[in-house]
Each structure stands twice: as structure tokens, then as C-alpha cells.
Design a binder for these strands. Sequence first.
DNA 1: TTGTAGGCGTTATCAC
DNA 2: GTGATAACGCCTACAA
Lengths: 325, 325
Amino acid sequence: MADVAREAGVSQQTVSRVANGLSNVNEDTRVRVQAAMAKLGFRPNFAGRSLRSGQYNSVGLCLYDVREFGNLATVDGILSAAREHGYAITMIENVDDNLSLKDVSHKITELPVDGMIISMSLMASDFDSFKPQPGMGTVLLSMYEHPCCTTVESDQYGCSWTVVEYLKNAGHRNIRFVAGPSYSIDSNFRQKGWEDALVHFGLPVVQPLAGNWLADSGYEIGCKLSADTEMTAIYSANDQMALGIIAALQDRGIRVPEDVSVVGVDDSLEGYIPHCNLTTIRFDLLKRGRTAFEHALLGRKPGYTPEIVRIPGRLIVRDTVRNLH
Amino acid sequence: MADVAREAGVSQQTVSRVANGLSNVNEDTRVRVQAAMAKLGFRPNFAGRSLRSGQYNSVGLCLYDVREFGNLATVDGILSAAREHGYAITMIENVDDNLSLKDVSHKITELPVDGMIISMSLMASDFDSFKPQPGMGTVLLSMYEHPCCTTVESDQYGCSWTVVEYLKNAGHRNIRFVAGPSYSIDSNFRQKGWEDALVHFGLPVVQPLAGNWLADSGYEIGCKLSADTEMTAIYSANDQMALGIIAALQDRGIRVPEDVSVVGVDDSLEGYIPHCNLTTIRFDLLKRGRTAFEHALLGRKPGYTPEIVRIPGRLIVRDTVRNLH
DNA sequence: TTGTAGGCGTTATCAC
DNA sequence: GTGATAACGCCTACAA
């Protein structure tokens, strides 16, 4: 900036005014300064600006696993909300299973950020006792509620109620659940929702089998389930396993949905397989990201009180459920 | 930092030494300072540090579309390389189709970054004339070569040679190609590679049909292709369309691979469908990201000369190709 | 309209 | 081993 000032024969302050588009600059001077800027390839220095303003215009993001379903679209939502606010996203990887929320939060605090969004797929050891950095809007992507931080998550519990109620209304009474891995928080909440809904509607609860999210594990479970002559519907904790289950049933001569209905979660197969006809739950993951970002910004303000945001899923009705009435 | 100094009864300089773990500090003093730090919740200020050092320890990233296949795993690779170097990633969204490389590069330069990685899915209008910011390692994720910037990309051209040569060796002569959308650079390079390889091996070239990457468009194309009695193999520009093609052929009584062999690209179906048996090309997308990051760092150094990095794909042999010999 | 002074938080350098 | 000083680039406040 000093160089530009010298080149244009003005003070640094005038250069600063031009750089920020302030109005109180003579038109001739402005042109001269802009010429000097262009000539020297001037770009305002981020550190100087931030040091002065105390702001970074960026929000930190730490995801436990970028590849996990849902995180991708969430990043998309965060980025788009950030762009609208003139913000960037500063991202770091968390590979350490044992890292506490405090550690992660400290790491992010050392980056140029005004707030942070943290997703920890496993339960952090210090989840409940964690205190966010003062003045830092801190948002957790989590189904667990937190005393001091806003938590945002797709409603992994409510989606099961939606499914069970839909199946019950279609006349189903024996509704099996196929779970994901036992360490998965999402799977656990989906299972709890299924169980609670069954109990609420007075339907029988049978201990669920668990897979590993992948289609092949769904196939294996489908083979086992095919022996069950009571069930009329299967609710799978994700779409991939649902696909495997359907294949296994069909290989055994059990028709879907004529003999058994199947419902998945995520709506992750569209475009991947031809004539995708799986009834499933779709979450608004863009909104998940956008909401998290908005709260990370709001959270800086003094009067802010943390919220619990659960973004509902929508049932996408396709052809894998039969109405028994 | 001044507060910590006062609390511990030492100078700021000593606090700085402790914060940076320098050795020339008395053990007693160190303990006292650390206690003060903990008490006041001291975190070093990013802006101050950067202003001093002229470094940010972050690399800028601008992807045209995070959701595009390959970008996700690439982000993963970039993040993991970044973490190993103690770097963060500063990300912005680019939604503007008409944005020039210069515009994007300027935007990123205003962020706290020491280098940048840019992916523009469409051809930038100023691609060839673009000059990177001096002192900024600038890496383009692109199949097009650039005079001044390192370009990194999965080898979208070579993968087709691999496929064609493999099919030729299995005795196939009539090998159709199914393209993606015409604006897709990846699809164009895959097609060019297929064509060049066919010509090289003296095999007949038939004008390819184009889909939209999705499985259903593959199904439609499969229906049309099923009329072709000459072909013994189909090479699809991605796996989803390949799946649609296979479904269409089978619906018409054409067996895969007994009657027609099918090969895809991306290896994107594993886990998504049960008993995935599609022969395909797998790219090392983590490496794509890691390499891009490494070069963005190296590119800052004065002696650095830009490189053209093409990361080869690997043929994943499964069951959808028949050996005609 | 333009210029000057000062300070944001950090650390390199030199003096003690 | 520790402290004082200055400087990184920018912008607010004030003076001219």
C-alpha cells in the first residue's frame, strides 16, 4: 500500500479510501490511485485488515468424515450461505478418534475464523462439559442436545416416526428395522424412533439386525429376513442396504412390494440406478448446511441463545410399499 | 497476550516464547506463564501472527461444483495433505458460469492463503492468457495444459486407452462409446481417448450416443444400442450410465457379458448396489487432491517450474467383460 | 478533499 | 534468561 501511495503521489490513507470505495476522494485522485494499484498489482493484505477490524469473514469447519453421506451436500449448503454473506469457509480435517470437542475447538480458534461448525460422528468424550470459546458462534452438527451450543441436524429420530406411521396407515403391523453399525449415532436415533413409534401405535417390536451401511450387508440381512413369514414391511436405516435387501428377497422369490414392502432413508440412489423406485426419506441437506452457517454467524452476538434445530425429512413415495387395505 | 504478560508478571516477549515453545525460557517462568495462559484462556491471534510472518498456512480452494464425482474425494485428499503440513483449507463457492480465472484468482488472493487450487469445470474464457498472482502457488485441476500453472487431473484421456486395449486383447473389435453431456470436459477427453485408441488399433469408429451421466439416460441409450448387432462391447463414460445400459440390454434379452460386454468409469458404485460386478476404471482421487496441494505449496518457491500431472486410472476387472478368445 | 498519528497482536533483533 | 523496541499493513480518529 505504501508503494501504491508513493507511485500515485498520495498518502496511504487516500489509497485505503480508494481501496474501500469511500466517496470522499477526488475523481482525479481516484483514477490516479487506481492506475497505480493496477500497475503494481496491489491486493489488500488480509492480515492487516483483520488485525485492524478484528474480523476474518470466515467460518471454521471441522467434519469428522467428509465422505459420509450428507456431509457433502451440507458443505455445499454452508458454502452457498457463506458466499451470500461474503464469507469464506476455513476447513480442517479431524482424523483423531479420541479428540475432544475442546481440542477441536482450540485448533479451529487458531485459524482466521469468526465462528465454527463442528461435526463429530462419534460421541465426544467431553460433549456435555464442553464450553465454546466466548465470542465464537459455535454450532454442532449433532442429534444430541447441548447446553451451550446450537445443534443442527437432520431429524434422524422423527424420520422413523414418519415411516412407521406411513406403513401403519397402509395396513402394516409387522415392521422390521435393519440398523447400521452400532457406533453410528444416526442409526441409533433412527432405531429409537422406529421403536418408540411401534410402541406408540401398539405394534410388535422385533430385535433388529444390523449391517454396515453397504448394499452387500443388506443382501446378507435380506437372506436372513426372508425366513420371517410374519413381516410385511422392512424399514432399512439407509437406501444402499435397502437395495441389497430387495435383491435378496427377490432372489428368494419374495416379491417387492407384493409380498414385502421396503422403505429406505437418504434418497441417495437417484441417478445411480436405473428406474429407482425405492420409497425413502429425503433430508434437506442444503438447509442443514445453510442453517448451521447462519447460526455460526448469529452466535457471535451477545444476546444469542442456543437453539436446537431439527430439520425434518420428507417421505418420497415410490413403488416399494404396498397398501394392504 | 499483554494480559497474560501482566498476569504472569513477565514481558510480552516471554509469553511469545512460551507460546511458541522456544527453549530459552526458565522452567519456573514457563510454568507461571502457562498457568496465566490457561487462566485467561489465551489463544494466539491469527492476524497478528500472519502480519508478522507474511504467511497464512492455508491454501485457497475454489471448486466449480463440490457435488461433482471426484471432487469429494479430492477435497479429502487436499485436507489430509494440508493437515500433514499444518495447513488449513480456505474454500469459496463459485456459482458464476462466466467467471474468468482472473476473477476467481483475485477473489482467492484476498483470503488468508499462501497458494490456491482452482477447478473450473467449464473452460474459462481467459484460460490461456491467465497469469497467476506472483508468489502464489497456483494449481489448476484441469485436463487442459497451461503455460504458467501446474495442472493436475486424473488421466481422462489415458483411461480410455486402457479400456480399449483391454477389450481389444479380449478379442473385441466393435466397441461403442457412450458419452456424457457435450459440455463435460471429462467426457470429451474420454471420448477422444477412445477414438484415438480405436484408430490406433485399426478398429471401427461409430459415432457415439450421449447421455446426461445418470442411470436412466444410460437405460434409454441401452435401448437404442440394443438394435446394433455388430457391437460386442460398450464403453460407458461413467458407471451410472453403464448400469442403465446393462439393465436395458437385459430387459431386451441381451445377456451381459455373454452377448455384450460393458465397461464403465469411476468405480462409483461399490457399496451402492449389491454384488457390484461392473468392470471399470478407478482413479486415485485422494492422490489427485494430495498432489494438487503439494504443488500449491511448492509453487511459492522462486525456482519452481510448472508441471503437468496426469494421475493414471487403474482397470478394475470384474464380471461384465467376456473374453472372446 | 487530503494528510498525520496511533494502535490492532505478534515476533525478530538487540541490549541487558 | 529476559526485556525493550520496532515493524508487519491496515484503518479510525482527528487535524489541516
